[in-house]
């Protein structure tokens, strides 16, 4: 149990380091998702290709887009943490009721 906790902390630490490392070592990049530049790459392969349909709705700007992405992450981690909390509470409750007897 204890060792798993330590392992998790270490694993999360490594994950954070991997994510942060590019920000430190690579200068002069905006780390764009670069979705917008997709067109160039496809055009390189098939010149003259035009996307034949557009998204019928797109967030009006970066701020709204990041709001929606933040909502998605917040909602998702809310559910993940709720379920983990539920399982932990259940286990702790059982331990309590065992020690009561």
């Amino acid at each position: 149990m204890r060792s798993k906790k330590i392992m998790n902390i270490v694993l999360i630490g490594i994950a954070v380091m991997i994510a942060v490392m590019p920000l430190v070592i690579i200068k002069g990049s905006d780390f764009g998702g670069a979705d917008a530049k997709a067109e160039d790459i496809v055009k390189e392969s098939s010149p003259g290709y035009e996307p034949w349909i557009e998204s019928f709705w797109a967030p009006p700007g970066g701020e709204t887009e990041s709001l929606l992405f933040a909502l998605q992450a917040a909602f998702g981690s809310g559910v993940v943490c709720m379920v983990i909390g539920y399982y932990k509470g259940r286990r702790d409750g059982r331990r309590l009721s065992v020690s009561d007897k």
């Binding site: 690579i26 990049s29 780390f31 998702g33 670069a34 909602f75």
Partner: peptide, 16 residues
């Protein structure tokens, strides 16, 4: 899956 696909993470190529 919802959380992880919402997080755009910088990578070694300079894009996310």
């Amino acid at each position: 899956a919802f959380v992880l696909s919402a997080l755009k993470i910088p990578s070694v190529t300079g894009s996310s």
